[in-house]
């Protein structure tokens, strides 16, 4: 079983760190993992993305054209990855930044007001964690608790005071993805 995930957003929205957190958590729970960022000129002012693969077998290609899961933190990422998510896959959309609604009927789409959730807990910098919580609710490749434990070990010392807030944002993102209202919206 192999799951490929692309997380994409503006530089500073935490797309790369959210991917690293998944990779660390996967590794710590005995999976094979790869993480690869976009490192081209697009990083400067455009979108940054990373591809994470979590697998119970050794991983060949670290890149995919068609991910099982995509997380769009902003509109350009929404437009880029909506057509690419594998049929039956999951598309997590930051509805604070994306007012559009996905047209695809053959994928699960979940909308999370990630900026608002993060801001309410102290800082918009935790946007990535709200979408990650939603991802884990819809596709429990790892448990929420496992990812929280990993975060404890990998949050930079300068951000240690935000650990509990990050935990809450993960939980609120998780809850947002399981609320009936969100499910309705995704079936439009």
């Amino acid at each position: 079983m192999q799951t490929s995930i692309i997380i994409s957003g503006f530089g500073g929205q935490g797309a790369l760190f959210a991917g690293q957190l998944l990779a660390y958590a996967g590794m710590e729970h005995g999976y094979h993992v790869t993480w690869i960022p976009s490192y081209g000129p697009e990083m400067r002012g455009g979108t940054a993305n990373c591809t994470v693969i979590i697998s119970d077998e050794p991983i060949g290609a670290p890149l995919v054209n068609y991910p099982d899961i995509a997380v769009a933190l902003n509109l350009p990422s929404f437009e880029k990855y909506q057509p690419l998510v594998k049929p039956g896959g999951l598309f997590v959309v930051n509805s604070s930044m994306v007012t559009a609604v996905a047209e695809r009927q053959d994928i699960d789409v979940v909308y999370v007001p990630a900026n608002e959730i993060a801001e309410q807990q102290g800082t918009v910098k935790m946007t990535n964690m709200a979408t990650l919580g939603a991802l884990l609710a819809k596709r429990p490749i790892l448990s929420l608790e496992a990812v929280q434990e990993t975060l404890r070990g990998h949050l930079p010392a300068s951000k240690a005071k935000l650990l509990q807030a990050n935990f809450r944002v993960l939980e609120l993102g998780y809850a947002a993805a399981t609320q009936p209202k969100v499910a309705q919206q995704s079936s439009i």
Partner: peptide, 9 residues
């Protein structure tokens, strides 16, 4: 660049 930039255990 792939091998240089990617992370793996």
């Amino acid at each position: 660049g792939t091998l240089g930039q990617m992370m793996e255990p």
